[in-house]
Amino acid sequence: MIQQLTSSRWSHVFTTIVIIAGMGVGFFLRDNALTEVRIYTDIQFGITAFYPAAWSVSSSTSYPFRARNLTERGFPTTIQITVQTVPDTISPRQVFDTLSLERLQTLASYNVISSPVNITLPDGSSASVVEYAYADSEADPFLERIPSIIRGQDVVTIRRGQAITISFLSDEKTYDANLSTFEEFLQRLRL
């Protein structure tokens, strides 16, 4: 009887250890998956970027790089790089103005919510940042959904006669939580 009680007690001790250790393995797997990055290289535009492994990457004629988190419900958090050939005399402010004029015609309730702020990129070059917001409605009219507010920021740097715009877009509700992913992306970006 005493042996049975002792065995039972050890059994519960082992089970508790297994539960705690198992959850620890779960956290380890989660951290590995969420912090895992993949490399993207574009020789034509000279871009080397590290993006979250779970995100989906695409490119087109209008942008050489776009990564989106398609696992999110609603608007997928997006990081996009666009490259435009510009005159050497152009300033980031003029690039922002051109972008704003385009977006005012295509995006609902587009609003710039901060004036350009100068920052220094990790490679030592200067860039300007502007924040903005707009209302995103479902493209398919049959899917009834209340429009969501999308908050974004553009980081513009001009080099080699090109205006490189790095855009970050996220649902306003998850913007702050996702901003660290964008900051990590900027830290590792090579242009």
Partner: peptide, 27 residues
């Protein structure tokens, strides 16, 4: 805390089984 919806749906088959076992299953 485990945020399984963010990292498991797009993972490989083995990773999904391991992931669900040590998050949802063990809990």
């Amino acid at each position: 805390i485990f945020t399984t919806n963010q990292w498991l749906p797009l993972a490989s088959a083995v990773d999904r089984i391991l992931g669900y076992t040590f998050t949802v299953g063990i809990t």
